[in-house]
């Protein structure tokens, strides 16, 4: 897991550094970014969340090493950290090749499935010169076109 105290630095880094991967992570309750999975274009498995008292937590076992950042509301219990999160985020890298912005097509069944599974948090996609939210209804909304340097701050 990679941690970014400044979400904007993290979002730009995963977009610029992983041109041939889809990168997945979460925005924490205190607005930091944790990057949990770097996946191939064809997808893969990502780490899930745990819902407790209406808050979604990202579980991080002690066995994977100590955390570099502090997180508001974090719980440590029986060998696991539970980091409270408010949004998921992943990159739509294929738009680098297909000429789209990556957030204008219908939301895929796989992404809808993720939003349906975790309805209590925001879900963001980082595309080509655009970011957008999606939810279980299957449409992108809150589309923000323009430079990621500016738009990264709009992910919440």
């Amino acid at each position: 897991m990679s941690e970014y105290a400044n979400k904007c630095v993290g979002i730009q880094n995963i977009w610029n550094s992983y041109t041939n991967n889809e990168v997945f992570g979460y925005i924490t309750m205190d607005d930091k970014l944790i990057v949990t999975n770097v996946l191939p274009f064809i997808g893969g498995s990502a780490s899930g969340l745990y819902l407790f008292n209406n808050i979604y937590y990202y579980p991080y076992p002690d066995s994977q090493g100590s955390l570099n950042e502090t997180y508001a509301g974090i719980i440590h219990s029986a060998g696991n950290y539970f980091i409270p999160i408010k949004a998921s985020l992943h990159t739509h890298t294929p738009c680098r090749l297909d000429g789209t912005d990556g957030v204008s097509h219908p939301v895929g069944a796989d992404d809808i499935s993720t939003a349906t599974r975790y309805p209590g948090i925001n879900h963001w996609v980082v595309g080509c010169n655009a970011i957008a939210q999606f939810d279980a209804n299957g449409v992108f909304f809150n589309v923000q076109s323009g430079s990621l340097v500016v738009n990264c701050n709009k992910v919440y």
Binding site: N37, L39, G44, Y50, I75
Partner: peptide
């Protein structure tokens, strides 16, 4: 059961994309 968390599934993943 992990501490206060009941029904926690430490090994759970979910499939993101692919199919």
């Amino acid at each position: 059961r992990v501490g206060r968390f009941k029904n926690f599934r430490p090994d759970e993943v979910f499939q993101l994309h692919g199919g």
